[in-house]
């Protein structure tokens, strides 16, 4: 369009290439989730070390404690979000043309499903199912 000031070529515009104007948000979310992951993951590593070898009943009792359950939930959500962003960057670097959109969608599905399964697991334990 001649009236629009843009250095993008018409072909690039049609293909949807170039800035999606979401780069800053993307970068920021990656940093926010990274910072959140830091204490959450440290807590979880020590939790795993302390529950190893324990019986199922004891593991469930510890995971069902509101503090443990909330921290675990926060870690899952922040972690999966960070994963989705990070893998998207990898995909955008290496996958072009044809399969790109499908691979990006697969990334969303994977992160969503893994996150959902983990959230379901911890909630079922926490609510005493």
């Amino acid at each position: 369009m001649a009236h629009e000031k843009s250095i993008r070529t018409p072909l690039a515009r049609v293909k949807g290439l170039g800035s999606a104007k979401e780069g800053t948000e993307h970068f920021w979310r990656q940093r926010v989730t990274a910072l959140a992951n830091l204490p959450l993951v440290i807590f979880f590593v020590f939790l795993i070390i302390s529950v190893q070898g324990e019986s199922h009943a004891d593991v469930v009792r510890i995971l069902a404690h509101p503090f443990t359950a909330i921290v675990t939930l926060a870690m899952i959500i922040s972690g999966v979000w960070h994963m989705k962003i990070g893998m998207q960057v990898i995909i955008e670097d290496y996958v072009h043309e044809g399969p790109k959109l499908l691979v990006l969608m697969a990334n969303s599905f994977f992160c969503f499903l893994v996150g959902l399964a983990a959230v379901f697991g911890i909630l079922k334990i926490a609510f005493g199912g």
Binding site: H56, V59, V60, L63, T72, I76, G79, V80, M83, V114, G115, A117, A118, F120, G121, I122, K124, I125, G129
Partner: peptide, 12 residues
């Protein structure tokens, strides 16, 4: 992360 989800779902 699949291992984490597996562990939690199994515990549940």
């Amino acid at each position: 992360t699949l291992l984490l989800a597996w562990w939690l779902v199994a515990a549940a």
